[in-house]
Write a protein that binds this DNA or RNA. Sequence first.
DNA 1: TAAAGTAGGTACTATATAGTAACTATGAGT
DNA 2: ACTCATAGTTACTATATAGTACCTACTTTA
Lengths: 116, 116
Amino acid sequence: MTQSHATSCAMDSILRLLMGPWTSYILWILQSEGPLRFGALKRKVPGISAKVLTERLRLLEEAGVIFRDYKPTIPPQVTYGLADRGKELAEVFKTLNTIGRRWAEEDKMEKAGKAA
Amino acid sequence: MTQSHATSCAMDSILRLLMGPWTSYILWILQSEGPLRFGALKRKVPGISAKVLTERLRLLEEAGVIFRDYKPTIPPQVTYGLADRGKELAEVFKTLNTIGRRWAEEDKMEKAGKAA
DNA sequence: TAAAGTAGGTACTATATAGTAACTATGAGT
DNA sequence: ACTCATAGTTACTATATAGTACCTACTTTA
């Protein structure tokens, strides 16, 4: 049995989406830099391959978290940006980020205390 | 290059923790049912193996999200429950859950609208 | 004497998927 | 004629890890 049985809550589908590799980083960039073209976005996420970036963007678009604006010029122009749902998520991100920072702080203090 | 390079933000480590298989489900149960013994918890997460449950619990404990209370009786009694950090996360969970539910609602409406 | 329950640990396998490299069409520039 | 850029796609490989099955020590109960 795979875990799909047990993942009944709505939150889980969001987590599953967000947790793909690079995903949170991609959203973070789109949130802080605004809409970007594929190539520009790829350059902002050093190390990601076109394949994986495409994969992630497709999933995020399908979930309605980002929009995709395709202009069939030559060469084509494809722009990605946060949709309403993405902006909603960005708020939660900020909370998680704050919590994460505080935890890291606490852990550091704890370690320093033990070392003393 | 693996993605570790790119995951600089604090939020990411939390997401990475939460997203392990079953993890959010485990936390959800501990939040709604209170502290549970290993066996009881395992029974509440149908389909999970002892190995994976142990693995997840260890990670959550290491992150300070849950506590582990070990009593070396025979047979041993080990109780797990939400620590302060876990309760903090539970708040974010509720937000995500609400958002997830609304999205699912919206998606359903959308689909119904298209079908008509 | 044997089975069952506790809380796991160990060894192995199977599979999903991240990563790599090469390829697509089109046009612009030199 | 050749290269570069765009926005991907396709085919292949490599690896991390979820899953399965079996093991531990000890006691209680039948």
